[in-house]
């Protein structure tokens, strides 16, 4: 609503603009946080900074150096593999769980609570616990040996080729409940008459889901995928607690490289360049999605009025 403009008096002016005035502290903080901090980090990435920040401009050399470093390219391809398996895995498991719970099961709240609780637990705790389970000296392998299966081998976490999948499994354990919760909410919003119509048309239950129910909630799948991708790109704590990026660089992800460059190796400029690359990756996921959502909203708005 636009308010009647008023004339005269500072008190009056303050009264009329109180909303804007109250918002100022948050706006300043948000502006500093979102804009200034980003520009700052970007500036560091094109500066000569090493151990300490140094504002002298030096160009985009650190970006080139970053993309030539093996560690960074490996971390990016790790992120790609991890992100793909993680997003698809969490969504498949989440969809399956949502459909199972959707069958009017008894104690629905209990099942939901069980599948969603990992999300309340920190990545640090999650990673620590699963490291113990996956580690051959403390976890599954040892248990199998004790049960008499001496030749059993389960050492993915120390295997360069398989360690990344340990991260994937753990991350799916953590996030599939999230996918389940959102998809279940979507399933519950589907018009019941459509489902009845499909039943009368003779569709089996799996076919009803595949052809009628799930396609109507595809925007939810898109939203879940975007959020999970965003989680994947920001992944840091989980890997630190689970594998510390190893063995070697087998599970190193971009966020770990940023930390190392900035705080361990005294290469602030290159670390900043790596941070900017993470921002770019997020932008590649989020900007098209945001634009698409706006476009869709406008389309719907046009339909209604």
């Amino acid at each position: 609503m636009s308010l009647p403009a008023s004339s005269g008096g500072l008190g009056r002016w303050l009264g009329d603009h109180i909303a804007q005035i109250v918002l100022i502290p948050t706006l300043l903080a948000s502006f500093a946080y979102v804009v200034l901090f980003s520009v700052w980090t970007f500036w560091l990435s094109v500066s000569t900074s090493t151990m300490l920040p140094d504002p002298t401009f030096s160009g985009f050399g650190e970006y080139a150096a970053l993309w030539q470093s093996k560690r960074w390219t490996v971390s990016f391809s790790n992120l790609f593999v991890f992100g793909t398996f993680y997003v698809i895995g969490a969504m498949v498991v989440g969809t399956l769980l949502a459909i199972l719970i959707d069958q009017r099961v008894k104690f629905e709240a209990v099942w939901r609570t069980i599948f969603l609780y990992p999300l309340a637990i920190s990545f640090i705790v999650t990673g620590t616990v699963w490291r113990w389970i996956f580690h051959p000296q403390t976890g599954v392998e040892l248990a199998l040996h004790d049960m008499g299966w001496i030749s059993a081998q389960f050492d993915w976490i120390t295997d360069r080729d398989l360690a990344l999948y340990v991260v994937v499994i753990t991350a799916i354990w953590h996030a599939s409940g999230f996918a389940m919760a959102l998809i279940l909410a979507g399933l519950r919003s589907v018009d019941g008459d459509i489902v009845k119509a499909a039943q009368i048309d003779g569709a089996s239950v799996p076919r009803t889901y595949a052809r009628v129910i799930l396609p109507t909630i595809w925007p939810i799948f898109l939203a879940v995928a975007v959020v999970l991708l965003q989680f994947a790109i920001k992944t840091y704590d989980l890997v630190v607690a689970l594998t510390q990026g190893g063995p070697g660089v087998a599970t190193t992800v971009p966020a770990i490289v940023v930390f190392d460059l900035m705080f361990e190796r005294g290469q602030i400029a290159q670390g900043s360049a790596a941070a900017v690359m993470i921002l770019v990756a997020l932008g590649i996921v989020l900007i098209p999605y945001a634009l698409y959502m706006r476009w869709r909203k406008r389309q719907e708005g046009g339909d209604h009025g």
């Binding site: 502006f31 946080y33 920040p53 965003q230 966020a255 940023v258 993470i278």
Partner: peptide, 16 residues
């Protein structure tokens, strides 16, 4: 502007 803060990766803010 305010909600952009939700998406900003923390790595961009560490040094500042």
């Amino acid at each position: 502007l305010i909600t952009l803060g939700v998406f900003l990766p923390p790595q961009m803010t560490l040094l500042p």
